Simulated scan of single mutants.
Amino acid sequence: MRLMHTMLRVGDLDRSISFYTNILGMKELKRSENEEYKYTLSFLGYDSIESSTVLELTYNWGIDSYDHGQAYGHIAIGVDDIYTTCQLLKDKGCVISREPGPVKGGTTVIAFIKDPDGYSIELIQEGSN
């Protein structure tokens, strides 16, 4: 078994794809549309769908926002240099919702950003845990 993907519902597919590709450096790996049920799926990631866990963005046609509820937490992305990465993301207009620093009660260095739909993304300094 393997973890294949995480799915997020998005209100503007082009805006979200632009964020994940242009800001976070992912590649769009696959896209499919279902005209009968009026939705589009886009799979993004840093490696192939077959060999890594990817992000599935689901756009239900005509729906432009979602309530995230109380259960959603975040997705996490490992980075080599969290301070430089956060500065580069800020320079690209990304919202940093928690500046880089050690996690409370620990030594792992983390930061949080928001995607265009308000989903939280944790950045984790590789090798800091």
Rank of each mutant, 00 (worst) to 15 (best):
C86Y: 02
T40H: 04
Y39P: 10
I23L: 07
I77K: 03
W61F: 12
T85G: 02
V54H: 07
I75C: 04
T21I: 01
S48I: 06
V54T: 14
R15E: 08
I63Y: 11
F112V: 02
M26R: 02
T6C: 14
G93Y: 08
F19I: 00
P116M: 07
S128R: 06
L57R: 00
L57I: 02
G118Y: 06
K27N: 08
I121W: 02
T53I: 14
V95P: 00
Y83Q: 03
R98N: 09
P100N: 07
K27P: 01
C94L: 06
T40C: 04
D14W: 00
G93Q: 08
D47C: 06
P100C: 11
I110Y: 01
E50L: 14
N129L: 14
T6K: 14
T21R: 02
S18C: 12
S128I: 04
L8Q: 08
L89F: 13
C86T: 05
Y20A: 00
I49D: 01
P102F: 07
G11S: 05
D91W: 03
G101T: 06
S18G: 09
V103H: 13
D81L: 07
V95M: 11
D67Q: 13
I110A: 05
Y37F: 15
L3H: 08
D115V: 01
T107W: 10
S18I: 02
G69H: 04
I23A: 11
P100V: 06
S97F: 09
K92T: 04
T84D: 11
I96N: 11
E28Q: 13
N22H: 09
H74R: 07
I96F: 12
T107E: 14
M7A: 13
K27F: 01
G101R: 09
R2F: 14
T107H: 14
V95C: 10
L44C: 03
S128A: 10
L123R: 01
E33Q: 13
S16F: 00
P116S: 08
S65V: 08
F112N: 02
Q87A: 13
G127I: 03
G101C: 10
V79K: 01
T21K: 02
T84S: 14
L24T: 01
D80P: 00
Q87K: 13
D91L: 01
T53C: 15
K27H: 06
T53G: 05
D47R: 15
G11D: 10
M26G: 04
Y46W: 07
V10I: 10
D14M: 09
I96P: 09
I110H: 03
A71K: 15
I96D: 08
M7T: 15
E126G: 05
L57A: 08
M7R: 15
G73Q: 15
V79R: 00
L55M: 04
E28C: 09
G105A: 12
E50R: 06
V95N: 12
G11R: 13
G105L: 09
N60Q: 07
W61N: 08
S128P: 05
T84H: 08
I49Y: 03
E99L: 12
S51W: 09
K104I: 05
L89T: 04
